[in-house]
Simulated assay, not measured.
Amino acid sequence: MQDKGNPWQVKHSEQVYQSPWIKVREDKVITPAGTDGIYSVVEFQNSAVGIVPIDEDGNTWLVGQWRYPLNAYSWEIIEGGCPIGEKAEDCALRELKEESGLTAKTLIPFLEMSLSNSSTDDQAIVYVAKDLQMGEAQPEETEDLQLVKIPLSQAYEYVMQGRIHDAISVAALLKLKQLAYF
């Protein structure tokens, strides 16, 4: 399997919107077919970081919260946004502490993914956190979180039942099952 070069040609690029979370740019392009076109791209100002804490008994923690863009409640692994310039490992440890109160001596990266490659540059990295110690959660003021501790196998069953539908959580739990973590 061999990667091909980029067949797109950018004639002009313009930023059309920016917030603390995203930038939107519009590119005037020549498509791979040789025709003129427009490609709009959402550039995220954070990368996504996910953490699956696993204790010595095979339990993990899920976070429940209302997801504003979806207008729905969502059960997920612990996740957060990693600002540009922050090391993903540092962000993962911070988010773990903030959302669950847990600290981890061991952090193992096991999944990297592009979340929507058709119109965004959104990237994610997911870690397994082990050698855990419980403390007090310190969620951000905009977060109204519910935290549950369950067997990792039950989290996998929730994925299979459709009760967990967050893309990062689904991919992480399915990969952990494939890697025989439980």
Rank of each mutant, 00 (worst) to 15 (best):
S40N: 08
P139N: 01
N117R: 02
D3F: 15
V126G: 14
G64L: 11
E95N: 06
V29Y: 02
V42C: 04
P69S: 10
I84F: 14
V63L: 05
P53R: 09
L145T: 01
Q45W: 01
D121S: 00
N6E: 12
A88Q: 13
V41T: 09
R163E: 15
V42G: 02
F44H: 00
T60P: 08
R163M: 14
V10D: 07
M160W: 04
E141D: 06
G58I: 01
E112H: 00
A167Y: 13
S116Q: 13
Q146K: 11
D57Y: 11
Q9T: 04
A104I: 07
P139Q: 03
G58H: 08
P69K: 03
V42T: 10
T35P: 02
A155D: 03
L102G: 06
W21K: 05
L176G: 15
V126S: 15
S13D: 03
I164T: 06
M160I: 08
W8L: 02
F182C: 12
D166S: 14
M113V: 13
V29E: 06
I108R: 12
L174Q: 13
I38W: 15
I51P: 07
E95V: 14
V170H: 05
P151Q: 06
S19W: 09
E89G: 15
L176K: 09
I108A: 12
W21G: 13
E26L: 10
V49F: 10
H12M: 05
A155I: 05
N71P: 01
D166M: 10
L111N: 10
L111G: 14
V63M: 08
K11F: 11
T106I: 13
P7S: 05
K97F: 08
E99D: 06
G135A: 07
L115A: 10
S47N: 15
P139F: 04
R163Q: 15
D144W: 15
M160F: 02
W75S: 03
H165V: 05
F44M: 13
I51Y: 05
F182S: 10
I84K: 00
G80E: 00
W21F: 06
Q178L: 11
G50Y: 01
A167C: 09
K87W: 12
E140K: 15
Q161G: 01
Q161D: 14
E136C: 06
L173C: 12
E112P: 10
P83Y: 13
E14Q: 14
Y158I: 05
L62W: 08
S100Q: 02
M160E: 12
A137N: 02
L174I: 11
E95M: 14
C91A: 13
W66G: 00
Y181G: 10
M113G: 13
S74G: 01
S118I: 06
D36M: 11
A124M: 10
V148P: 01
E143T: 04
Q161M: 09
T35W: 09
G85Y: 12
S116I: 11
D144V: 09
T120I: 03
N46R: 08
N59Q: 02
G64H: 12
V159F: 07
S47R: 00
S74W: 09
Y127A: 14
D166G: 13
V24E: 04
E141K: 03
A88P: 06
N6A: 05
